[in-house]
Structure formats: C-alpha cells, structure tokens
Simulated assay, not measured.
Amino acid sequence: MLSGISAITIGQSHIDNKTECQDSAILDFNDKYVMGAVADGHGSKKHFRSAKGSQFAVEAAKYSIYEYMNDNYEKFVDAYNKDKKYLIDRIIKMLITKWHEKIQEDINNEPITQEEIDKYLDGNFNEDKIASIYGTTLLVGVMGEGCNFGFLIGDGSFVVIDKHGKAYIPIEDENSKANYTTSLSSSDSFNGFVTHFFDEMPFSIMVSTDGLVKSFGDDNDFLDYNQAIAMELDGLDTVDKRIEMEDRLTKLFEQRSRDGSEDDISISIIFNSDAYESVKQGLETRRKLNKIDEQIGLSKKKIVTLDFKQKQ
C-alpha cells in the first residue's frame, strides 16, 4: 500500500522574531500513486509574500500531477515509459503556469499596496518581477506502479531509501553549494528544475526543506537520521496512526530547529508500506554499520589528538 506523512515546524528564529513560517508541505495518495512535496519561501524583506508563494507551489504541484496521472493512469504509465523526460517536463510547465495563476488570483484579491512597496521594496516596485515577491523553492516526489520520479528547484533535500534500506541523495540544486538559491519565481525557472527517474519503486522518498539538513554536521549524519525515520514507518495503516507519527516528527523538528539551523523545517515522506518487512533488515544493518563507522571516526580523532600531544 502506498502512503505518506508530512510535518511542518516553525523555526526557532521565526518564533524569536515573531515572523511567520515560510514552509509548506502537501500529500496526495490513492490506489494508483502517491505524491509528496515541500516548499520553502525565501522569506527575506523583498519576498514579503513568499509564505503564500510556498503554499501556492505545493498546491500547483499536486494539481498538475493529478491532472496528468489520475484520469487514465495506465495511459500515463504507457506515455511515461515511452518518453519520461518529455512527459515530466510538461507537468513542470503546467505547475509553473498554475503557480503564476495563483499569484495573479492573490494579487486580484489583495492588491500590492503602496505601504507594502515602501516598507518592503524601499519604493522600488517592478510589476514585471512581481512573482519574486512570492519567491520559493519546491521539491516533489512521486511513487506509483510503473512510474517513480522526482524533481526540485532550489535548496532542500531529496532523500531516497531504496529496497535494501540504503539512504542516498540522487538529485540536488548545484547552486545551493554556492550559497545561491534557485527560485520558482525566476523568469527562466523551467531550466532551473532538476529531475530524477527511478528504474524501480524505492521504499521511500523523503523531501525536506533546507532547515533540516542544515541542522546536521554532515551528509552522513543527515542520511542516518532519515534512515531512523524510515524505521518508524511500519504500521501506519490508519489516519490516526499517521497523525500520531506526524505529531512526533513535529516535536522532533522543534528540537532540531532550536539546537541547529533555527529555521523552519518541513518534510513530506511517501513510502510503500508493503515493502517495509523486506527493507527493515537492511535499515537495521546499515544503522549498525553507521554507528561502527562513527565509533571508528571518533577513535581516529582521539589517536590524532594523542599523537599531537605527544609531539608537543
């Protein structure tokens, strides 16, 4: 059975500064496919409606995927297998169009005021770049029989747990390494998307905003954390159980934000619950190996420290 959970936690810095959460998350699952998405509004002064922008982004992703996949799933899978890139590019283009439509609807309902222009844009308002006010990232994962894929624009993390329990990151935004965030509001946003296709259905796809990964010292610790979450995905076969797990994640992320990035943290996790038993052993083994590697690493540091002291 395909299923999903999500959680959104306001960052500690947002609590301290009394600013709104910029993150959004969404899920959509049925007997054909499951999708999960997260988005992180840029949040700076000139992006003063980016909290709405992130919400519009995940809604546009859900809408576009539904439009293509829900009506005739078998036909979609057939087209997907013939030309994956062409089909997913069309979904992304529809998503971008829908996002801009939602922005226009919001502006029609709540026009940009002169007060906002003076306060947030220092009086410099360019109507041609109005989408930047709603600037956001977006990460999306989809799992279904015969078609499994994901895409993203901007920073955040796209983590996969394969059928052997291995956690890895197949795609990321290269600009984030240069401390630059690619945005859905860019005039050339379509070319900013990075896409990944799976040869077979993984156990789980976990998309999260950058507030989570920035709470860890390195990628290994972060992936180990994702594997620990994956081990908790068993038995989530009712709405109540999924809500309970989402509440647990929210509380965990509150602590993560306080001790780490202080940023908003959001995650959407989609998974194949029928595969849990077969992947469980792999998850447990890899967690044990990670702990052994961690102990070896600590031992090496101690040896280096002792050697340094002896030389002194």
Rank of each mutant, 00 (worst) to 15 (best):
M1S: 15
M1L: 12
S3A: 07
T9A: 07
Q12Y: 13
D16P: 02
C21F: 02
D23H: 02
A25G: 02
L27I: 08
N30G: 12
D31A: 13
M35Q: 02
V38W: 00
A39N: 04
D40H: 07
S44H: 12
H47D: 05
F48I: 07
G53F: 04
S54I: 02
S54Y: 00
F56L: 08
K62S: 13
Y63F: 13
S64E: 02
Y66T: 10
Y68K: 06
Y73M: 05
E74D: 14
D78T: 13
K82M: 07
D83W: 05
L87I: 14
K93V: 12
W99R: 04
I103L: 05
Q104E: 11
Q114Y: 10
E115V: 14
N126M: 08
E127Y: 11
E127M: 07
G141Y: 02
S157C: 11
F158T: 01
V160P: 07
D162H: 09
D162R: 04
K163W: 03
H164T: 15
G165H: 02
E174V: 15
E174F: 10
E174H: 11
N175H: 12
K177Q: 09
N179I: 08
T181Q: 04
T181Y: 02
S187F: 14
S189E: 05
V194H: 11
T195R: 10
P202W: 01
S204G: 10
V207M: 00
S208C: 15
T209K: 00
T209I: 06
D210M: 10
K214T: 09
S215T: 11
G217Q: 08
G217C: 07
D218H: 09
D224C: 13
A228D: 09
I229Y: 09
E232I: 09
L233E: 03
D234G: 07
V239N: 12
M245I: 05
E246D: 06
D247M: 15
R248L: 11
L252D: 11
R256N: 08
R258K: 15
D263R: 03
D263F: 01
S266Q: 00
S278M: 13
V279Y: 05
V279Q: 00
K280A: 15
Q281T: 09
L283G: 06
R287H: 14
R287I: 13
K288G: 06
K300Y: 13
K301F: 10
V304C: 06
L306A: 10
F308Q: 08
